[in-house]
């Protein structure tokens, strides 16, 4: 099977994009219904990136934030973060990082750092370090302890994102493992998850 930007967008991969975006949106509501104090809103992006590759993952992440911004425009700048998540997870999938739980956790740690490096400048420069959700309270604590705005945003992100991203990757990994071999083999990067 040929791989790369030109070949990754097969019909079945294209049809997976809306599903990935919908999973992202529905999970962020499910998390609110069950009152779980995490975002977990990139599971769809990660899922698509794992089995359909980095470029399809990138599109899924970007589209998620564009759709969300119809109702909350502050999500729009963070499209870059979602796109980076899709790209990174897809790349890890090519490098066979999702073959065991231990490797998945390592991938989660690396992903956390990449996400923070991308998202911290966006939230500091565009929004002065506030996001209007629970993490703002954590940030205020760091700020009150006398740290600068960059350091506070970075530390509070590290605290929340590391739990969030590692857990998201583990959930996605378990679900992909449960997919049928017949379905996985239709995707360009599905064979890494076969014969488990």
């Amino acid at each position: 099977m040929k791989k790369g930007l030109k070949f990754d967008f097969t019909l079945i991969a294209i049809l997976l994009i809306p599903i990935g975006v919908a999973i992202n949106v529905v999970i962020s509501q499910l998390v609110q219904v069950l009152r779980i104090p995490l975002y977990l809103d990139a599971i769809g992006t990660m899922l698509v990136a794992m089995i359909a590759g980095p470029w399809v993952g990138l599109v899924t992440g970007g589209l998620t934030n564009v759709i969300k911004s119809i109702f909350s425009p502050t999500e729009l700048p963070f499209a870059i973060v979602s796109m980076v998540i899709g790209l990174t997870v897809g790349y890890f999938s090519i490098k066979k990082m999702f073959t065991s739980v231990g490797k998945t956790i390592i991938a989660g740690v690396i992903l956390t750092f990449i996400v923070i490096i991308v998202s911290t400048p966006i939230s500091v420069i565009l929004f002065g370090g506030s996001t209007g959700d629970s993490s703002s309270a954590v940030r205020a604590i760091f700020l009150a302890s006398g740290q600068g705005i960059w350091k506070s945003v970075f530390s509070s992100n590290l605290l929340i994102e590391s739990i969030d991203k590692i857990l998201s990757l583990l959930i996605t990994y378990t679900i992909v493992k449960k997919m049928s071999d017949r379905y996985l083999s239709k995707h360009n990067y599905g064979q890494n998850f076969l014969d488990s």
Binding site: I12, L30, R35, I43, K178
Partner: peptide
């Protein structure tokens, strides 16, 4: 308890929707 309810809801949801793409 609430976190435990998360995966049993999520897994069927994702697997059904993904299967529908075929």
């Amino acid at each position: 308890v609430r976190a435990k309810a998360f995966l049993p809801t999520l897994t069927p949801l994702i697997l059904t929707s993904v299967a529908s793409t075929e």
